[in-house]
Design a protein around this nucleic acid. Sequence first.
DNA 1: GGTCAATTTCAAACCGCTTTAAGTTTAAAC
DNA 2: GTTTAAACTTAAAGCGGTTTGAAATTGACC
Lengths: 348, 348
Amino acid sequence: MTTLRELATHLGLSPATVSRALNGFPEVGKKTRIRVVEAAKALDYRPNTSARRLATGKSGMVGIIFRAARNLLVDPHFVEYLAGLSMGLAERELDLILRHAPPGAQLASYQRLIASGSIDGLIVSAPEVDDRRIAMLTERNFPFVVHGQVGEDVAYGFYDIDNHGAFSRATELLIALGHRRIALLNGSAGLAFAVQREAAFRTTLAAQGIHVPARFVSHADMSEDAGYNQAAKWLSGLHGFPPTAFLCSSTLMAIGVMRAAGEAGLEIGKDISIIAHDDVLPHLRSEHFSTPLTVTRAPIREAGLCLAEMIHKRIDGAAPRSLQRTANVDLIVRSSTGAAPQDGGRSW
Amino acid sequence: MTTLRELATHLGLSPATVSRALNGFPEVGKKTRIRVVEAAKALDYRPNTSARRLATGKSGMVGIIFRAARNLLVDPHFVEYLAGLSMGLAERELDLILRHAPPGAQLASYQRLIASGSIDGLIVSAPEVDDRRIAMLTERNFPFVVHGQVGEDVAYGFYDIDNHGAFSRATELLIALGHRRIALLNGSAGLAFAVQREAAFRTTLAAQGIHVPARFVSHADMSEDAGYNQAAKWLSGLHGFPPTAFLCSSTLMAIGVMRAAGEAGLEIGKDISIIAHDDVLPHLRSEHFSTPLTVTRAPIREAGLCLAEMIHKRIDGAAPRSLQRTANVDLIVRSSTGAAPQDGGRSW
DNA sequence: GGTCAATTTCAAACCGCTTTAAGTTTAAAC
DNA sequence: GTTTAAACTTAAAGCGGTTTGAAATTGACC
């Protein structure tokens, strides 16, 4: 562990000069700089981050809070998102510090993390409609960016996909195929993206004069189980005519719907249609499902990469409003969607 | 941002006393301690981690390197593992710092992370048979624990599941069901766990006098795609009689095998049998597959929780050899396994 | 009351780096 | 040969904690 002081003594220079030389300050002569840089390399000198941090007030670290209950499932999308994030940060010589906090202790965790002075910025994920974390961070004027857009005109940086466009187009496709009883399997109520998706869904149907019964919109965590349970309930027909088309907030839910449909003896793409939003989980490709799935598609890894860039700029003082991006979503039609059954599916 | 000095002034004490009081040193009077602790709470004082770190040499952070190539898939098990790890660390007031490094730059990344002085310990994942990271860390005497056992008698802490027991029992089950042409879809060659599993597989078959053709052991990343491709190749029969049973290193691979079997018109649990190792991905439950899957089961989240405890003890000076654990694996029989077809499956 | 030890508190040094303000050289200009 | 600006270099003061060694206080005991 070579220290700056040792290096300076070794070179016959003062620590100040060495520090300047290594950090690219202009006041250092060219020959001196070269000499210093080479000696540093030769002695394998690495500045101690804690010391630098203490002196500069910058930590070179970005925080993210891992929200999960001890016995609850972790969103598998998170790892892809994290992959993007950590790659993007690594490119910028930033480190990610990942701290776990149970759902109940979120706000306190954010505050502790900030107060400990170990991070320069925060990534906020899965915002809710009136997100207290965002309110708190805004008030403290602590640098942060959000994965998800919460309102129309917000004062902070964010990355989001075009949820409205995606779900409008998906709904339009189903309508065009003749479907009239369309159900939405949405994410948990209160999450910003779920609200956006539901609004797009309702608006599009309303524009065509199609009524949406309340029971055709469900909220749940985005798991295979939740998809199965909800679809099985609908398909049982116990609560009225089942939907002929299912719009799922995630491919995982779609897998559950497919399982329920299979058990009900229904053919996907013929008896019923399914569209899901595909965040692109590379190990679970919607084009390879037993019936290839029609999806709205936007790789979640991109979100991580983009947010990494944004938080970097934000820490460097960029105006939050210059760091806002809404990404396009592709609609990819495969065989899980087809014309609505002739009899409206009432014969099952 | 209250500092220690401010707090001390506020209390009319010296920083030294306040520091001692908060850190539980015995030289501080009881009333003084209470007074200090309460004032700290009132002023919402949090010691600056960088400063503490610089003074103590301890950072309160544990590092993990996220190995992923830009365009490669990320192992979905990683998020579950990470969940366990970050929960376990949070309980012990440790933070996790997650740094990305491409496969080619692993060793250098580990070295940089250590040299920067920002972590007290490291978690090493997915060890290979002769792992250079382990060699390097051992040589530097830097605290670390490994997810996976590399040899019989090693000098560092590790957590692993009983790969040998799991794959022996799974193989035995298939033999007992009458299968003789059994294939192993293993993880990538060179990974310690893959070596263990293959050894168990071969030993068990050899003990029964069953020969394993080389083509019945494949190595690949553990994805649905890889499972599908390999199974499709075998089932095509172009390279000899196909296996009647498949032993998969992961449920993801099993999904691929099931897809290939479906396309070949084979009934799972009757025409062919499948067993997979299930690390328990909560969003993808093997009991809910179209044919419920027979599995060897060990939640990977446990690994994270246990390793968190181990690295904590290791940093506190525990002897590495006292931190070694091999966890039991359950064999859960469901309907994807059945008696080998009467004709040995030669009729397809 | 004086002594001695135990208890409690403090001043100051230190961790390793950055940065300000000031000092010293060097080169150019007069 | 000064004068002056430009180019380098440095000493020293932080950053916010911890810790050592010494001093001040307290109380028990003779």
